[in-house]
Amino acid sequence: VTVDIKGMEYHFDNPEEAKKFAERMAKELGGELKVENGTLKVE
């Protein structure tokens, strides 16, 4: 699973970990979490 945090890509084997990480980063950065082509994106 790929997580894109404002252009920086992180790769996770575990989808649950990827989702938790993306949600935490969205909250910390005040960004919006989206799913695009199987990639979790925070913008």
Rank of each mutant, 00 (worst) to 15 (best):
V1P: 02
V1A: 08
V1R: 07
V1T: 12
V1N: 07
V1Y: 14
V1F: 13
T2A: 05
T2L: 11
T2N: 06
T2F: 08
T2E: 01
V3H: 00
V3D: 00
D4Q: 15
D4P: 02
D4T: 15
D4F: 14
I5G: 01
I5A: 02
I5T: 01
I5V: 11
I5H: 04
I5L: 06
I5W: 07
K6M: 15
K6C: 15
K6S: 14
K6Q: 14
K6A: 15
K6H: 15
K6R: 12
G7T: 02
G7R: 00
G7C: 13
G7I: 02
G7S: 02
G7K: 02
G7E: 03
G7A: 00
M8T: 13
M8I: 14
M8N: 11
M8Q: 12
M8L: 12
E9N: 08
E9C: 15
E9R: 14
E9T: 10
E9V: 13
E9I: 15
E9L: 15
E9K: 14
E9H: 13
E9Y: 13
Y10G: 02
Y10Q: 04
Y10F: 13
Y10N: 03
Y10M: 06
Y10E: 02
Y10W: 07
H11R: 07
H11Q: 08
H11W: 13
H11L: 09
H11M: 08
H11A: 05
H11S: 05
H11N: 07
H11K: 07
F12A: 01
F12C: 10
F12N: 00
F12W: 00
F12M: 00
D13F: 06
D13W: 06
D13P: 07
N14F: 05
N14G: 06
N14K: 03
N14D: 14
N14H: 07
N14L: 06
N14E: 08
P15K: 08
P15E: 13
P15M: 15
P15Y: 15
E16F: 08
E16W: 10
E16L: 08
E16S: 10
E16I: 09
E16R: 05
E16D: 12
E16C: 14
E16T: 10
E17K: 05
E17I: 04
E17F: 03
E17P: 00
E17M: 06
E17L: 05
E17T: 06
A18V: 00
A18S: 01
A18R: 00
A18L: 03
A18C: 08
K19S: 08
K19Y: 15
K19A: 09
K19L: 15
K19R: 14
K19H: 13
K19F: 15
K20T: 07
K20S: 11
K20I: 12
K20E: 13
K20A: 13
F21N: 01
F21T: 01
F21D: 01
F21I: 02
F21M: 02
F21P: 01
F21Y: 04
F21W: 08
A22Q: 06
A22E: 06
A22C: 10
A22T: 02
A22M: 08
A22K: 03
A22P: 02
A22Y: 06
A22D: 02
E23W: 00
E23F: 00
E23A: 02
E23R: 00
E23M: 03
E23I: 03
R24F: 12
R24V: 09
R24T: 11
R24G: 09
R24S: 11
R24C: 15
R24Q: 12
M25N: 01
M25Y: 05
M25S: 01
M25G: 00
M25A: 06
M25L: 08
M25E: 02
A26H: 04
A26L: 09
A26G: 03
A26F: 05
A26P: 00
A26T: 06
K27E: 09
K27I: 12
K27W: 10
K27Y: 09
K27T: 10
E28L: 14
E28H: 12
E28T: 09
L29P: 02
L29R: 02
L29V: 06
G30S: 07
G30M: 08
G30Y: 06
G30H: 11
G30E: 07
G30V: 04
G30F: 07
G30T: 05
G30L: 07
G30Q: 08
G30C: 14
G31W: 12
G31C: 14
G31S: 07
G31P: 04
G31I: 10
G31H: 07
G31M: 12
E32R: 14
E32Y: 15
E32T: 14
E32P: 03
E32C: 14
E32D: 10
E32W: 15
L33A: 05
L33S: 04
L33E: 03
L33Y: 04
L33V: 15
L33I: 14
L33C: 13
L33F: 05
L33N: 04
L33K: 03
K34E: 06
K34H: 11
K34Q: 08
K34A: 07
V35Y: 14
V35E: 12
V35P: 05
V35L: 08
V35M: 11
V35F: 13
V35W: 15
V35G: 06
E36P: 03
E36S: 10
E36W: 01
E36Q: 10
E36L: 10
N37K: 08
N37L: 08
N37W: 00
N37V: 03
N37S: 05
N37T: 06
N37Q: 06
G38I: 03
G38H: 04
G38A: 03
G38K: 02
G38D: 09
G38F: 00
G38V: 01
T39E: 08
T39C: 13
T39G: 09
T39R: 14
T39L: 12
T39M: 14
L40F: 05
L40N: 06
K41Q: 08
K41R: 13
K41P: 06
K41V: 13
K41S: 09
K41Y: 12
K41F: 12
V42D: 05
V42E: 04
V42R: 00
V42F: 02
V42T: 05
V42K: 03
V42Q: 03
V42P: 05
E43W: 10
E43C: 15
E43L: 15
E43Q: 12
